[in-house]
Design a protein around this nucleic acid. Structure first.
Lengths: 111, 111
DNA sequence: CGGGATCCAAAACGATACTG
DNA sequence: CAGTATCGTTTTGGATCCCG
């Protein structure tokens, strides 16, 4: 009665929504990647590495691939030597920014 | 320049906020537990189990403990036989509901 | 009824080396 | 420069049994 706009009791619909969301932006690094691309714009691969000291090579490329597969980021490759690749948010990627803002705000206010 | 109210470039402050938040509400079950308690109110231990078919004994008690340790839920024990324990959200617990709403909304709108 | 303890499987994460 | 491949570690989740 308190949340008329959200119907969730139809067998697991709630869990699916929340878990789907977590599967897309959960984990240790995805939110940080999305944040940098969302707030600062386009970044190259090694720029992202520098912005996230602590992330490993493997994690960065893996998470970038997953985010691209989920349609949250664009990967633009220039066929030059040396290689050059630019990452940016898609429209869908920008749609998660409200979640980021809400979480970031909560994190600041609660220790 | 686009987000004057949020300063994050002071070495890892951003990551900390987001990661702290994820450490508190991340994982497979915490959000669902918080949702039930937030939207439906007080629940007993076995009520929560029935509301979350699929969760194991261990996970439920473990996550309830973590949520309690983080100050998001209250645990009220009645010294009766048989035992009776009620869980509910704290004020801090309710403060995460905006995150849940935002994520749930996103999950519904994006497949 | 509401857990705790133990053991095990699976997934996430990390270090390092190699490549076009 | 921008990755991939392999291996090992750490974290997370699950099955089962026990307890007051």
């Amino acid at each position: 009665m308190s949340t008329p706009e959200i119907q969730v009791d139809e067998k697991g619909k709630l869990k699916c929504c929340l878990e789907d969301t977590l599967s897309v932006i959960g984990g240790k690094w995805k939110l940080v990647i999305l944040w940098h691309l969302g707030k600062e714009g386009i970044h190259r691969y090694n720029e992202l590495r520098r912005l996230m000291p602590g992330i490993t090579h493997k994690m960065l490329s893996q998470k970038l691939k997953e985010l691209e597969a989920d349609g949250l980021i664009n990967r633009k490759q220039y066929n030059e030597v040396p290689p050059k690749v630019e990452y940016s948010l898609t429209k869908k990627g920008y749609s998660v920014m409200p979640i980021l803002d809400t979480m970031h705000k909560w994190g600041r206010e609660n220790e």
